[in-house]
Write a protein that binds this DNA or RNA. Structure first.
Length: 722
DNA sequence: GTTCTAGAAC
DNA sequence: GTTCTAGAAC
């Protein structure tokens, strides 16, 4: 079937398009098709499952047949059905071929908007009226799987609001019969709406357990249910129509000074709301979340009431009951920066938020804090970048902690203000304003990086602030503590730690902030395409290739970093790196692993002293998924620098066994930060640190220490005795 | 990914 | 002086 498609138009070599619309009822799929068709410059046929059987709902097969016929006629096709799950799209993607491009248009509009449109709708072809719409939309969104290029799409457009939809309408209606659109992903991805639902449930559970709307009743049919879901204050505050959870830089902060420092709640809540308002007037795209662990927190309700009174934008500022150290894992709320209610010595302990954050972040935060500041005075704040090795970074995605020291009204604690609230309020204002400004600087620093790397795909016009507005560290650190090196998380033995605060936040935290915005799919420089070319055309690389199968190509690394160093390439198009890997690739990854093991065995049979490790780089330099099979002698003239060493000997290197295990368990792979590559170099056996690569190499040529226990487990190392 | 090289570190 | 790193160019 695929082979025949597009044949009739082959002479003119016109490429037809199958545009698969992806969106829940009420997202505007049909409207989109109609709008494009109205002024289209190429023939389009809309295939709608709701009406395909003589105006009534039909089957997917009928849709496929109808699309196939239209393509045979040289027409382009809209697939107008929800297509939210990969499984529902897969057969339509198969319509693609040499003369048929498969595009997706993701209508990622706010769930609330889709629900209200569906509810209001009376003449919709799918008969999705009334209260049932809310149930259906919610249920569908929970199962939503964002389309990926790896499914077989040549182009995916994401629309999060009406203006982006209109832009897409323009693009497709202006597309002439012989025109093509560039491949790739366009428009930022929003969070999955199921995450929003996760938060909604969490909030209902903790904020108001008695009046909780059960999932069943939310999915029920009464319109009153929708009222409850939409009308409840807490839900409304957190599910406003403009929210897209993942992409907005978010700061989570505790109430400063109101716990152990016994600051008056009424006054503190006033300061918070006023400072938040001031900040949000200045900054466009950020979110601030006030977090408190206690159910029915007095502070949160005071702040909520005051925020509502002045109509603070509830999508930019809201309150949340939860553990500030577990926001991502427990509520799905991703906060890259969190604030800590610190003590003046910036030490762990003391209970409350400070103890919780230092506990959760591990020793790494203590060390990193020491590198940035010795002490803090009231009203001041200091930014501490979290090392990627910190559990808080790994598990929660927190890249920075900003320590804040608030005013103290507790006679038992240092800097007691003797109930001088004039001074107290001034200091508290300073503390919040400094916190928010520091947060802003971090976000700006991320943007500064994007500005330098336009190939990342982020449009400057999308940026929330003026890129020129970044401040050097000495201005933003805003503390009277002795300023130390920003961004230092390496051991004291590293020479670079001797630096002062002359560096800038921008430079040191660029990669920290890499998660603030999701960039479009990576573009690969020409030199990075060699493996891709080898995987696609192994016959052209006969000098380096040593084995070809239907799924893999095996070759010797051109610049081996050890006595034996092989690469096993996946022979799949658009599987560039681990970030592209999903559950469907499990069999392939297992095949690759077996091929690697087979070769390791062969080498070991020739030289029994060899020990092998099989794994992937978190962020490879070369395109095309490739497994490294590398002997652990690292005896090679090509191993020349820190990056070479650390790419195989830090958690940047992900063991194949662990990748497969995580893929089975979670359906995706957790990648580690590129900053690991510039960390100090340590022996992979005895873990001793070395000042430079020549000294490290001299050491590893002699070191006979046993491998660390972690490597000896789960078959991560493979030797003659394995 | 590598090569080249300026300049930092020793 | 030599050694080594790190950034730019490819």
């Amino acid at each position: 079937m695929e082979g025949e498609l597009g044949q009739s138009s082959k002479e003119e070599s016109v490429t037809a398009i199958v545009l698969i619309l992806v969106g829940p009822p009420g997202s505007g799929k049909t409207t989109f098709c109609n709008d494009v068709t109205k002024s289209a410059r190429r023939p389009w046929v809309r295939v709608c499952q709701d009406t395909i059987a003589n105006g009534k709902a039909g089957t997917k097969l009928q849709c496929l047949n109808s699309a196939f016929e239209a393509l045979k006629d040289g027409k382009s096709v809209f697939i107008d059905r929800c297509n939210l799950e990969k499984e529902q799209r897969i057969d339509f993607v198969k319509l693609g071929g040499p003369l048929v491009d498969i595009h997706a248009l993701v209508l990622d509009l706010p769930a609330k908007l889709c629900i209200s449109r569906s509810v209001k709708r009376t003449g919709h072809e799918g008969n999705l009226q009334g209260g049932r719409a809310a149930a259906v939309v919610n249920r569908m969104l929970q199962k939503k799987e964002t389309p990926k290029l790896s499914e077989g799409f040549t182009r995916i457009t994401f629309c999060q609001n009406e203006s982006e939809v209109q832009a897409a309408v323009n693009v497709y209606s202006e597309l002439g019969p012989k025109d093509n659109l560039p491949s790739g992903c366009f428009g930022q991805k929003t969070s999955d709406t199921k995450v929003q639902l996760g938060i909604m449930r969490f909030l209902k559970k903790v904020e108001n357990p008695d009046k909780t709307v059960s999932e069943n009743s939310l999915m029920g049919v009464k319109s009153s249910d929708i009222k409850v879901a939409e009308g409840k204050e807490v839900v409304e505050r957190n599910l406003g129509p403009e929210i897209s959870l993942d992409d907005v830089p978010t700061l989570a902060f505790p109430s400063i000074s109101t716990a152990d420092f016994q600051f008056d709640h009424e006054k503190a809540s006033e300061v918070i709301v006023e400072e938040v308002e001031k900040f949000l007037n200045k900054v466009k795209i950020v979110r601030l979340v006030l977090v408190d662990l206690t159910h029915g927190s007095h502070m949160l309700s005071l702040v909520r009431a005051k925020a509502a009174k002045i109509n603070l934008d509830s999508t930019k500022f809201f309150t949340l009951v939860g553990d500030i150290t577990r926001l991502n894992s427990e509520t799905g709320l991703r906060c890259t920066v969190i604030a800590n209610a610190a003590n003046w010595r910036l030490k762990p302990g003391g209970g409350g938020v400070n103890a919780a954050i230092f506990n959760a972040a591990g020793q790494a935060l203590e060390t990193a804090t020491r590198e940035c500041a010795g002490t803090l005075s009231p009203g001041r704040t200091v930014i501490v970048p979290l090392p990627p090795t910190s559990p808080l970074y790994e598990r929660e995605g927190v890249t920075h902690v900003i320590h804040v020291l608030g005013p103290n009204m507790n006679p038992q604690r240092p800097n007691f203000l003797h109930n001088d609230y004039t001074k107290g309020c001034r200091i508290l204002r300073e503390a919040y304003s400094s916190l928010f400004e520091n947060f802003k600087s971090l976000v700006n620093s991320k943007i500064a990086m994007k500005k330098e790397q336009p190939e990342d795909g982020l449009q400057l016009s999308d940026l929330p602030y003026d890129c020129a507005g970044t401040k050097p560290i000495d201005q933003i650190q805003n503390g009277d503590q002795k300023s130390k090196r920003e961004g230092c998380y390496e051991s004291e033995s590293n020479k670079k730690c001797k630096g002062t605060s002359s560096g800038s936040v921008q430079k040191s935290s660029n990669s920290n902030m890499a998660e603030f915005t999701e960039s479009a799919k990576k573009t690969w420089a020409s030199w990075a395409q060699a493996l891709y070319d080898t995987a696609m055309h192994p016959d052209r690389h006969k000098d380096s290739v040593i084995e070809i199968s239907s799924d893999t190509v095996v070759l010797n690394d051109l610049y081996p970093k050890a006595k034996k160093h092989l690469l096993i390439l996946a022979r799949v198009n658009s599987l560039d790196c681990l970030a592209d890997v999903c559950k469907e690739h499990l069999p392939l990854l297992k095949t690759i692993h077996s091929a690697g093991l087979k070769w390791a065995k062969e080498f070991i049979s020739a030289d029994a002293s060899l020990v092998f490790r099989l794994g992937y780089h978190s962020v490879p330099s070369m395109r095309q998924l490739h497994l490294h099979v590398i002997s652990q002698d690292f005896d090679s003239i090509h191993l020349k620098n820190k990056k070479h060493w650390n790419s195989f000997n830090t958690s940047f290197f992900l063991d194949s066994v662990d990748v497969i295990e995580e893929l089975e368990r979670r359906g995706e792979v957790t990648l580690n930060d590129e900053r690991l590559l510039s960390m100090e170099v340590r022996c992979h056996r005895c873990r001793s640190a070395h000042p430079n690569i020549p000294r490290l190499k001299a050491h590893i040529s002699k070191c006979q220490a046993p491998f660390p226990a972690s490597l000896l487990q789960n078959g991560r190392l493979f030797s003659g005795t394995s």
